[in-house]
């Protein structure tokens, strides 16, 4: 072997050995340093409405980003369930046709659905497509909102919408099947999300008033129902912020458990569906109530959402013996269709 060749081989083999030893050695070093890094855990919770850590966004917190900052020309940027940007409602304007002739290219028609209606002033509105979150937006001060969803195929979809009021109480889910035509824009208007509802006492002394309150659109006529053996109705009007309050005199109902719900109407034309039912007890003392939890039932993994993860956990326990207690929503000792029905009622996507 010539001297020059030897030098060349050393020149090649040395870096290779150095590289491989670096690789092997560094693995162990970094394994140790990994252990140190893992000790400093930064907690970021997807779904708490605050953009943290590696999240691109969280709920309505889009970190100041918009469709235009994401490279689109317009539309509504929203946040997905996994805290990444959802650009499906972002639009890119077609370039203006050049003047002076020339062949035009084919622009595929967009298949989209535009939803509009009323929620509560400045409330967050969430749209579900086939039970999964597809877009969120914030309603205006007049409670009006509009959400556009594009990139759809022609076919039948189940869309649902719900809103969250200024106290973090969620409305019931409003669902509508929509037949989408390929290449056309379908408008779904006149949506009126049901009011939120809460009571100030979990137990009320018979004869005292119980405050039934919540939020709806501004200046809406609110009908409050208190269901006992007999159903009682009361009326009130929401204020400019959509907040309503109805004091119900419990002297007219018996001791025991009762439920209340509300619905709103504007000008006798736009009528919402009924809110969730809220229970209270008429007894011998007053016990103040906490505000309703964001999700009451069906949240099996305690992430404040009822979605595909909870469905998967329940499906795992479906028809199995000794199921997980939290998956047995009606407490009958088994996970069956009834538990899934309860979960579907409290679904948030």
């Amino acid at each position: 072997m010539k001297k020059n060749q030897l030098i060349t081989y050393i020149f090649i083999i040395f870096p290779l050995l150095l590289g491989s030893s670096f690789f092997l050695f560094q693995n162990s070093i970094f394994a140790a340093s990994d252990a140190t890094v893992e000790a400093t855990i930064k907690i970021s919770v997807c779904g708490n409405g605050i953009k943290e850590g590696s999240e691109q966004c969280d709920g309505s917190d889009l970190a100041g980003q918009s469709c235009t900052t994401e490279g689109y020309t317009g539309g509504t940027l929203s946040c997905s369930a996994s805290c990444t940007f959802n650009t499906s409602a972002c639009t890119t304007a077609a370039p203006a046709p050049a003047s002076g002739g020339g062949g035009g290219g084919y622009v595929a028609p967009v298949t989209s659905v535009v939803f509009s209606g009323r929620a509560y002033p400045k409330s967050s509105v969430t749209l579900l497509k086939d039970a999964q979150i597809t877009a969120t937006t914030i309603a205006g001060a007049d409670a009006n909102f509009q959400i556009s969803v594009s990139g759809l195929s022609g076919g039948n979809y189940i869309f649902s919408v719900y809103s969250e009021d200024n106290k973090g109480i969620r409305s019931s889910l409003l669902t509508f099947p929509v037949s989408v035509t390929s290449g056309a824009t379908t408008n779904v208007s006149g949506i009126f999300i049901s009011p939120t509802i809460a009571v100030d006492k979990s137990e009320v002394k018979r004869g005292d008033d119980i405050a039934i309150f919540g939020q709806s659109a501004p200046q809406a006529d609110i009908v409050v129902s208190v269901a006992s053996d007999e159903e009682f109705f009361g009326k009130t009007i929401s204020d400019k912020d959509g907040v309503y309050l109805y004091n119900f005199d419990t002297s007219i109902i018996d001791y025991g458990t009762h439920n209340t719900k509300s619905k709103a109407s504007i000008g006798n034309q736009l009528v919402s569906s009924w809110s969730y039912l809220v229970g209270f007890r008429v007894g011998t003392k007053n016990i103040m109530a906490e505000l309703p939890k964001v999700v009451t039932k069906g949240d099996l993994n305690s992430d404040r959402r009822v979605n595909l993860i909870d469905f998967s956990i329940a499906a795992y326990w479906y028809k199995r013996s000794s199921p997980l207690a939290s998956a047995d929503l009606n407490g009958d000792g088994k996970v069956d269709l009834i538990d899934f029905s309860i979960m579907a009622f409290y679904w948030t996507g």
């Binding site: 997905s80 369930a81 996994s82 990444t84 499906s88 497509k129 086939d130 999964q132 990139g151 759809l152 195929s153 022609g154 099996l300 993994n301 595909l308 993860i309 956990i313 795992y316 326990w317 997980l324 939290s326 998956a327």
Partner: peptide
């Protein structure tokens, strides 16, 4: 000729299963 709808798989764990 349409491809399936967009979807977002989620990685999670729960002490009660698997």
């Amino acid at each position: 000729t349409d491809i399936p709808e967009t979807f977002e798989p989620i990685v999670t764990s729960d002490p009660s299963i698997f």
